[in-house]
């Protein structure tokens, strides 16, 4: 409770100061102690990432961003932000993951519904502490006034944009790590230079919040721009990288499968072509290969993408319904593949 009260006191002081000077109200700064300290803050508001949480209006030094090809999560709208402490900046590392200074945070809010109907479901934060990244899930209340720490995750019934009634799963803290893990350490997944727009990186560069625009930036396709005329391969490979490769890569959660779906992987067997299953169980669906060129309906990879049944469905987490668009693109990719 003490940090909250301190925050309130700080806000009151700031308010008093602003009134005294008759200037525009400065938003309270983000709480660097909450990010870098050892505790798991009980509420999202303790961080102060937002001037207005419900509106997802970011505080100073909290930068909204988008990904060219995003991770699909039952069709949720995702609001993504990066917080960088004062004077700190991101460092580019080729086309890969941007390097974050200690004290930085990545914030992602999941919402369903449009306009006034929009309902925030959960906000996940990744905090870069001195000992490494920490992932925490926060669940929004019905009144949309606050999100509270949900260490054990939870479930909520809702209807997806596709009109499906689902039981939506908020991951528990360990499940955050299931995806955000490589060689046992928690890492961010999304903000890779190749999957960010040149426009955004240019703005960050200009604002002094990014060191340079690296080669290979923005090379992943913009998923929303896909049409039947688009080449299937880059979209399919981008989709598999973003939706599957955090586990399906060496050092990832599904490394023992031998399937490596990273964008940069060029070995056909590693990405599943003519690869036999190892521990798929009934997830194999009676098929012999992860990807059988020309035959999407005999490919385990597509079978599992196209299922919402636990034990069969891939991804195993963060999915209660099938991404029809994703399935269509991957289907086309396999169908067009030379036999």
């Amino acid at each position: 409770m003490r940090p909250a009260r301190a925050l309130l006191a700080a806000a009151v002081l700031a308010l008093g100061g602003a009134m005294a000077h008759g200037t525009v109200l400065e938003p309270p700064p983000v709480n660097d102690t909450a990010i870098a300290g050892a505790a798991f803050p009980k509420t999202l508001s303790e961080f102060g990432f937002f001037q207005d949480g419900r509106a997802q209006d970011p505080a100073a030094r909290v930068h909204a961003y988008a990904l060219n090809t995003p991770l699909w999560s039952d069709g949720a709208e995702k609001l993504r932000f990066i917080y960088l402490p004062e004077g700190a900046r991101l460092t580019a590392d080729g086309e890969g993951l941007l390097q974050f200074p200690v004290g930085a945070a990545i914030i992602k809010t999941f919402a369903f519904g449009e306009g006034a109907e929009r309902r925030l479901i959960e906000t996940r934060v990744l905090l870069h502490r001195a000992e490494g990244w920490v992932a925490l899930p926060y669940r929004w209340n019905a009144e949309q006034t606050e999100a509270t720490l949900a260490l054990a995750g939870g479930r909520i019934d809702l209807t997806t944009p596709a009109g499906e009634a689902i039981s939506y799963a908020i991951p528990n803290k360990n499940q955050c790590k299931t995806c955000h893990s490589k060689d046992g350490a928690v890492i961010p997944i999304g903000p890779k230079a190749r999957n960010l727009s040149v426009k955004w990186m240019g703005e960050m560069l200009k604002a002094g919040r990014l060191d340079r625009l690296p080669p290979g930036a923005a090379t992943m396709p913009v998923w929303a721009g896909y049409t039947d005329q688009s080449p299937a391969e880059p979209f399919a490979r981008a989709y598999l990288d973003v939706n599957c490769a955090h586990c399906h890569q060496p050092g990832g959660g599904a490394s023992n499968s031998g399937l490596d779906l990273r964008w940069e992987q060029s070995d056909p067997h590693a990405i599943g072509i003519m690869k036999r299953p190892v521990a798929a169980g009934r997830g194999a669906g009676g098929h012999d290969f992860s990807v059988l060129p020309g035959q999407p309906d005999a490919s385990i990879l597509l079978y599992r993408m196209d299922s919402a049944e636990p034990g069969i469905a891939m991804p195993e987490l963060g999915k209660a319904s099938v991404d029809k668009d994703g399935v269509a693109v991957v289907r086309r990719w396999i169908a067009e593949m030379q036999r």
């Binding site: 479930r155 360990n174 790590k177 893990s181 636990p310 195993e316 209660a320």
Partner: peptide, 12 residues
Amino acid sequence: GQQGAGEGLLVT
């Protein structure tokens, strides 16, 4: 009544 995850208990 399991609705999610690939196993009952995961130890890492």
